[in-house]
């Protein structure tokens, strides 16, 4: 079962690389923003799987904090573009 987690972590990293193409080549800022949001969602699963492989439950707290941070930064950029100022 553990090697299933190894394989899925490797595959997820490859999909992160696919999203990297959209981050680098994306025509406008919105393509880059959605690609970064996708990468953030994928890395949350990578974190949980790596935490499972190492049998260390502390990784779950990191991935929960990670999910919140990813959400906050996406909303900050959206609010800046919508309102013109963040605060």
């Amino acid at each position: 079962m553990i090697d299933i987690f190894h394989a899925s972590v490797i595959i997820l990293i490859l999909t992160v690389f696919i999203c990297l193409y959209r981050v680098l080549a994306g025509p406008g800022w919105e393509n880059r923003l959605i690609a970064v949001n996708t990468i953030g969602t994928k890395t949350i699963v990578v974190l949980v799987l790596v935490g499972l492989i190492y049998e260390r439950p502390l990784f779950l707290d990191i991935s929960i904090a990670y999910a919140m941070i990813n959400f906050i930064s996406t909303l900050a950029i959206a609010k800046y573009l919508r309102r013109g100022c963040v605060c």
Binding site: V23, W29, R32, V36, I39, G40, N70, I77
Partner: peptide, 9 residues
């Protein structure tokens, strides 16, 4: 935006 991806990884 790219730097936020950078520090995510």
């Amino acid at each position: 935006i790219i730097l936020s991806a950078y520090s995510l990884i």
